[in-house]
């Protein structure tokens, strides 16, 4: 089975500071890590490979330093890496990102694509589902458990607010995973040794057959108009007592404030 895992290099949230004027993240000097949700995606990819056979290819779009995260993925057991890196890819929103990834992944070849549910910096949770749309794949988001996997299909549990759905989908397919799905393993020394030596393929728009205008900032309809911290919400009060007392107290407050008028 050809498994592709998408990862994103993000600043280590434990050490990130906020610029108090612009409210943007101060990234300088902050250590980069693999997006934690992508670690669950990688672990699940490795487990499926161990069960079904095949390969795990890790792909990431990002600046050249993203290579270190791809090597790190190899230290955990990934077989191959692909870095999508080019000036034309810079400044991409989720649409341009997912389109770029789709072109790269089509070139790699796949049966199953696994993404983390979202990245801890952008927090959109859009890239996975958009990627499935570009590749015209069935997909399930927020997978918390794989119930069954065969050569033909995948049966998973999708985490919902009020429980979970059981979904079966045929290959090729895409899923995004939540942290409940597994406990990622530790890297191994053999993996680390391999990670030092492995060649990381770096592809630009030409290699993946993507028109420059579809990528990066030019390919991104999303424009960031302003970044700001939300206003604190207004004053709140808790009305206490048993339900009858609470209702009476609330009614008094509403009539006192002139919001409700009780006609006699």
């Amino acid at each position: 089975m050809r498994i592709v895992v998408c990862i994103k290099q993000v600043p280590d949230a434990k050490n990130v500071k906020l610029d108090e004027k612009t409210y943007t993240l101060k990234r300088e000097g902050v250590e980069s890590i693999i997006n934690p949700f992508d670690m669950y995606a990688l672990e699940e990819g490795l487990r499926i490979k161990e069960k079904m056979g095949g390969t795990v290819t890790v792909v990431s779009m990002g600046p050249p330093q993203t290579e270190s995260s791809l090597r790190e993925a190899v230290s955990y057991g990934a077989d191959e890496t692909v870095l999508l890196s080019h000036r034309a890819f810079a400044g991409a929103d989720t649409l341009a990102t997912s389109k770029t990834l789709a072109h790269g992944i089509r070139k790699i070849g796949f049966d199953l694509i696994i993404c983390g549910k979202q990245a801890i910096d952008g927090d959109t949770a859009q890239v996975g589902p958009e990627l499935a749309a570009h590749l015209d794949l069935p997909h399930v988001s927020f997978v918390r458990k794989i119930r069954e996997i065969t050569e033909q299909s995948l049966t998973v549990e999708r985490l919902m607010d009020d429980g979970y759905d059981v979904v079966r989908l045929p290959f090729p397919a895409l899923m995004t995973v939540v942290k409940e799905i597994n406990l990622p393993r530790m890297p191994s020394l053999k993996g680390k040794m391999r990670a030092k030596k492995i060649e990381v393929s770096a592809w630009g728009p030409a290699e993946i057959g993507l028109d420059d205008t579809q990528a990066g900032l030019t390919g991104s309809p999303t424009k960031v108009v302003k970044v700001f911290a939300p206003q604190p919400r207004g004053k709140r009060e808790l009305v206490e007592g048993d339900p009858a007392v609470q209702a009476a107290s609330l009614l008094d407050r509403l009539t006192d404030d002139g919001i409700l008028k009780i006609s006699k």
Binding site: M186, P187, S188
Partner: peptide, 20 residues
Amino acid sequence: KVLAESDLFGLIIPEEYGGF
């Protein structure tokens, strides 16, 4: 088990016998 899977039991064992 975690130490084993991370290859830490092989530190002092020669490479020809599967160690580090």
